[in-house]
C-alpha cells in the first residue's frame, strides 16, 4: 500500500508531467487528479477548443490507463456504448462484443448531445463499475474513470443531463480561457517542438492508481470537519436561491475530494481550506437554482461561493465550543 506521503510525491510528479502537454491549467489538472484519486468521475464543461480532450488523453497516458473515446451524437444507441451480443458465424454462437465503455479511462465527449436513453446507459457503468447486457453483468476494468465533456452554450440538438446523472459526477469543472501569457506560452511550445502532440511519459500504472486511491483512506478527517461538511450541504438545502439542495452523496464526495486535496497539499490530514477549495466543483452541479436565477444568469458556482462565505468553519480551540 502506498503511504500518503508517497502518494503526495506521486501526485506532484503526475501534475508536473501533465503540464508538459497542458499549458496554464495546473489547478484544473490538480482537481481532475483529486477526482480520480477520490474514485469519482469528472465533468468538464466549457466551450470547444479549450483542451478538454487533451486533458483526458494526457491523463490516460500519464496514469498508464487504457483510453477510449465516445463522441456522443443524437443517433448514438445504448449498445454503441456498452456493447451488444453479435452472432459469430464460425462458432455459431452469440458472442458479446464489448463497447468502448470497457476501458479504464473513458472520454465521453459532448455527453449532452445524445438522448437520455443513451446517457442512462452510462449510469450503471459510472455508478456500479459494471454493465448488464442480456441478463449478464460484466465488471468493468479497474480503475474505471469517466471524463465527460459538455458544451454549455449550444441548446439546439442537446439533451440536458438529468440531475440523477449529474449527481454521479464527483465534480464539474469549468476551464475558461487561458491568460494571454499562458496562451502565448502554449503557442511557443508548439512551435518549438515542431510536432502536433507532446510525447508524455507514464508516471504510474493502473495498479499504482488503485494504490493511491487506497492511501486516500488514510487521510484523517476530524469530527468537527465532518460537521463542517454537513453544515455546507445543509446550507445548500436551506438557501432561498436554491430549489433543490445537494444530496448526501454530495457530502460524501466532498469529504473524499477534500482528502484528495489534502494529499496534494502534502498532508495526511484534512484542514478546512481543503474542503473550501473543492466545495464549489463538488457541489455546484448538484444544486438546482430557482428559475428566476436562471433568467438573471446567476450561476450555481456563484451561489455556492456565497454560501461558503456564510458557513462557520471549525473553531480555533476545540475546547471552546463557541468563541474559539
Amino acid at each position: 500500500m502506498t503511504s500518503p506521503d508517497e502518494t503526495a510525491q506521486l501526485c506532484k510528479a503526475i501534475v508536473d508531467e501533465l503540464e508538459r502537454a497542458v499549458v496554464g491549467r495546473r489547478r484544473t489538472l490538480e482537481l481532475v487528479l483529486i477526482g480520480i484519486l477520490a474514485g469519482h468521475h469528472v465533468l468538464l464543461e466549457d466551450l470547444p477548443g479549450l483542451g478538454k480532450t487533451l486533458i483526458a488523453r494526457s491523463f490516460a497516458r500519464v496514469l498508464g490507463l487504457d483510453f477510449a473515446r465516445i463522441q456522443f451524437t443524437p443517433d448514438l444507441l445504448p449498445s454503441d456504448v456498452v456493447g451488444a451480443p453479435l452472432y459469430d458465424q464460425r462458432s455459431a454462437e452469440m458472442v458479446f462484443r464489448p463497447g468502448p465503455v470497457f476501458t479504464q479511462l473513458l472520454l465521453a465527449d459532448e455527453i449532452n448531445r445524445t438522448p437520455p436513453k443513451t446517457q442512462a446507459a452510462l449510469l450503471e457503468a459510472m455508478g456500479e463499475g459494471q454493465v448488464s447486457v442480456d441478463g449478464l453483468t460484466r465488471k468493468l476494468p479497474e480503475p474505471f474513470i469517466v471524463l465527460a465533456t459538455d458544451n454549455p452554450i449550444e441548446y439546439e440538438g442537446t439533451y440536458e443531463l438529468p440531475e440523477a446523472q449529474l449527481d454521479r459526477f464527483g465534480m464539474r469543472l469549468r476551464l475558461g480561457y487561458l491568460s494571454a501569457g499562458d496562451e502565448t506560452d502554449m503557442l511557443r511550445r508548439r512551435v518549438d517542438r515542431a510536432a502536433e502532440n507532446v510525447d508524455l511519459n507514464p508516471v504510474t500504472t493502473p495498479a499504482g492508481v488503485l494504490a493511491m486511491r487506497e492511501s486516500l483512506e488514510r487521510v484523517e478527517v476530524t469530527p468537527d470537519l465532518l460537521e463542517y461538511v454537513v453544515a455546507i450541504v445543509t446550507a445548500t438545502r436551506r438557501d432561498a436561491q436554491v430549489q433543490i439542495g445537494a444530496s448526501p452523496r454530495g457530502g460524501l464526495a466532498l469529504v473524499q475530494l477534500a482528502r484528495g486535496q489534502a494529499l496534494l497539499s502534502q498532508r495526511d490530514y484534512v484542514v478546512p481550506d481543503d474542503i473550501k477549495q473543492v466545495a464549489v466543483p463538488a457541489l455546484a452541479h448538484r444544486i438546482t437554482l430557482r428559475p428566476e436565477l436562471w433568467v438573471r444568469q446567476v450561476s450555481a458556482d456563484e451561489v455556492m461561493t456565497k454560501l461558503l462565505a456564510s458557513v462557520a468553519t471549525p473553531r480555533t480551540d476545540p475546547a471552546r465550543a463557541v468563541t474559539g
Partner: peptide, 10 residues
C-alpha cells in the same frame, strides 16, 4: 503548526 496540532492526531 496550528493546522497540524488542531486537525491531525500525529
Amino acid at each position: 503548526l496550528f493546522y497540524e496540532a488542531r486537525f491531525s492526531s500525529h
